[in-house]
Design a binder for these strands. Structure first.
Lengths: 336, 336
DNA sequence: CCGGGTAGTGTTAGCGCTCACATATGGCAC
DNA sequence: GTGCCATATGTGAGCGCTAACACTACCCGG
C-alpha cells in the first residue's frame, strides 16, 4: 500500500522534456509547442500520472480546496446548500472540505476554521445562521477569503443570504390576499437570522395592511414544535391563517389541526417555507416559499473566488429572492 | 492577504531549539524534556503558529483528510450519513472532503476519486448504493484505503451497510403480526441495493409466513412516486397493509389513501423506512424502521482507519441492524 | 576508567511541485 | 554579418515539513 505514484519528473523523462515543461502543460501555460504538449499528455496518460495537490499547495501557499463550516447538515436547508456549494465549487475546479460543528459558538467555529486554515484552504464559507456565530467571525484572521451564508446582516462581512423578509412578506401577503383578516406565525428559534427575518417580513406585511400582528408562536424548526403550537392554534376559533417559518413546522401544525378536526384550507389556511420535496404531498399539498439554494451557492462561490483572485476583502452583500409556490393549503376564510 | 504565517523554524528560533524539536512536540514524540516542550508550546502560542498540512502531506504522502464520494446528498439518508461521517472523522482528527457526483456511473465516480487522490487523501468512503457504482470501484487503484457504504454485497470490497433485509423483514412481520393476510410493497428504484434488500426482506417475511407476495409497486424514493402508487393501491379493496421502502414514499401513499377516503390505520396499515424526523407527525404518525446512521459512520471510519494504519486491504464487511419504530399507522385489518 | 546503553537534541536530505531566471532557437530588420 | 525580439525549453532554488541518522551528555555495571 501507499505506493507513491509517478511524479512529474517521471512524466518528464518519458516525454523527453524537463519537469518544468510538464508543469507548463498541466497549468495551461501558452508557450509550449503543440507537439510537445501532445507528447507530455501522452506520457501523463501512459503513466497514470496524477499531480500532487499537496506539493502544489505547499509551494503556492493555497490549495484548490474551499472549506465550509456548517452546523446541523441534516436539516433540509443546510443539506441543500451544502450540496449546491459542492456542485458549484467542483465546476470551478475546487474541492469542498466540510467542517461541521456541534454548536455555532466562538470556540467551535474558530476550531473548525483553524482546521481549515491548517490545510491552507483557498477560502472559507461559513453557514452561520445564528447570532453567536457572528462574534466568532469578526475575530477571525482577516487575511483569508471568507463568505458567510445566512449570516448577520449587520456585520461587515461578505454575506450571501436568502431574502427572508421578502419571502415571509410574500407568504403573509398571499394569505391576506385570499381574504384573511390577519395571519398567525409559527417562527423558528429566535437566535436564527432566518427566523428573525421571516418574523420581520410577516410583521411588515401585516402592518402594511393595517393589521396588528397577533402574538408570535415560537418553534424550533421541528415538526414536533409545530405540532405543539398547532395544538394551541387549533383551539382558537379566530385563527384562519397560519404562516410557519418552515415546512416541517407546517407539517406539525397540519397534523394538530387535523386532530382537532379543523379542516385545511376550508377553515384554516397554512403557508410554509423551504419547499421541501415532500411539501406537495402533505395533506393538503402545502403552499410554501422556495429559496433558490443554487443561486445562493453560486453567489457565494463567486464572491469567494473574487476575493481569492483579487486579494480584496470587500464586504459585498448579495440577497437572493425566493419565490412563492401556491398549492392547496390556502383558501378564503370561512364565512361567519 | 495571503500573508504566510510563521513556519516551524520561526517557532524553533523563538523557543531556542531546532525545528525538529518543534516537530517532535507537535507530533507527541516521547523524547522531549518537559521544560523544552513547554517552551515550544509557549512559542507556538505566542506566534499563533499553525502547522502546514500541505507540507506534512507532501512528506508523509498522506493528508489527514478522508474523501467521501456521494450522490444526492439532499436526501435524508445520504445527508444524515454524511453528517455522521464528518462527525466521526473529526473525532479521529480527520477532515472530510466531499466529492458529490451527479451520477453514480463509472466516469463520474472515477473522476471524483481522482480528485480525492490528487489531494492525497488518507482514505476514501464511497456511498455507492447503486449497481453502476460497483464496476467503477473494482477498477479503482487498489493501493488506497477504501470503504463502501450501502454498496454491492457481492463485491469483494470493504463494505458497511444497514441490514436492509432484516429491516424490511421486521416491517413486514410487524404488519403480519397485526393480523394482515398479506403485505403490499412500494419499493425504491430497482438499481439501488437498499431497494433490492428491502424487497428481499419483504419477500422473505411473506414466504416464511406461507404467503405468496403480491405484485411489486416500484417507486423512486420520492413522495410523488409514492402518491402515484398509492392511487392504485387505494382503489384495490383487498389491500390492507402496505410497506414502503422509505418514509417519503409512505407520505405520498398516505396522501393518496386520504384522498380516496381510505382511513389509516383503520382500513389500511402503512409502515415506512428511515424514520425521518417528521415521520412522527405524518397523518397518522408513521410506523417505520430506523437505520442507525451513526453506527454506520462509526463502522466505516473504523474500517478505513484500520486499513490506513495496517496497510492491509482486508475485505471486511459490517452490517448494522435497524430497529422498528411502532407508531399509529398500523392496526388490525378491518373485519370483513 | 571504560564500553555501552538511553534520553535529549541537532543536522541533513529530500517529498513534488512552482517560481524566477537562464538558455537555446528562429525570424527579421538593418 | 550583427542586433534584437519572441517563442520554446531547461536549471536551480526553495516552499515547510518529517525521516533517518549523528551527536552529546549522562548513568550504569564491571
Amino acid at each position: 500500500m501507499a505506493v507513491h505514484g509517478p511524479a512529474m519528473t517521471d512524466v518528464a523523462r518519458l516525454a523527453g522534456v524537463s519537469h518544468q515543461t510538464v508543469s507548463r502543460v498541466l497549468n495551461g501555460h501558452p508557450n509550449v509547442r503543440e507537439q510537445t504538449r501532445l507528447r507530455v499528455r501522452a506520457a501523463i496518460a501512459e503513466l497514470g500520472y496524477r499531480p500532487n495537490g499537496a506539493a502544489r499547495a505547499l509551494v503556492t501557499g493555497r490549495s484548490q480546496v474551499i472549506g465550509v463550516v456548517a452546523q446541523n447538515t441534516t436539516l433540509y436547508g443546510p443539506a441543500s446548500l451544502l450540496a449546491a456549494l459542492e456542485q458549484t465549487a467542483a465546476e470551478e475546479g475546487f474541492a469542498v472540505s466540510v467542517g461541521s460543528v456541534r454548536d455555532l459558538d466562538y470556540r467551535s467555529i474558530s476550531a473548525a476554521v483553524e482546521r481549515h486554515l491548517s490545510h491552507r484552504v483557498a477560502g472559507i464559507v461559513v453557514i452561520a445562521p445564528v447570532e453567536s456565530a457572528g462574534e466568532a467571525l469578526e475575530r477571525l484572521p482577516k487575511d483569508v477569503p471568507l463568505v458567510t451564508v445566512d449570516g448577520d446582516p449587520r456585520r461587515p462581512v461578505p454575506l450571501v443570504t436568502v431574502d427572508q423578509v421578502a419571502g415571509a412578506r410574500a407568504a403573509t401577503q398571499h394569505l391576506l390576499d385570499a381574504g384573511h383578516r390577519t395571519v398567525w406565525h409559527v417562527s423558528g428559534p429566535s437566535d436564527w437570522f432566518d427566523s428573525v427575518g421571516r418574523i420581520e417580513g410577516w410583521r411588515e406585511a401585516l402592518l402594511a395592511a393595517g393589521v396588528d400582528p397577533p402574538p408570535l408562536m415560537q418553534g424550533d424548526w421541528s415538526a414536533a414544535s409545530g405540532y405543539r403550537c398547532g395544538q394551541l392554534l387549533a383551539r382558537m376559533p379566530e385563527v384562519t391563517a397560519i404562516f410557519t417559518a418552515n415546512d416541517h413546522l407546517a407539517l406539525g401544525v397540519l397534523r394538530a389541526l387535523h386532530e382537532f378536526g379543523r379542516r385545511v384550507p376550508d377553515e384554516i389556511s397554512v403557508v410554509g417555507f423551504d419547499d421541501v420535496p415532500e411539501a406537495a404531498y402533505f395533506i393538503p399539498p402545502l403552499s410554501t416559499v422556495r429559496p433558490d439554494f443554487d443561486a445562493v451557492a453560486r453567489a457565494s462561490i463567486q464572491l469567494l473566488l473574487a476575493q481569492i483572485e483579487s486579494g480584496t476583502g470587500g464586504a459585498l452583500r448579495q440577497t437572493i429572492a425566493p419565490t412563492l409556490v401556491a398549492r392547496d393549503s390556502v383558501a378564503a376564510p370561512p364565512r361567519r
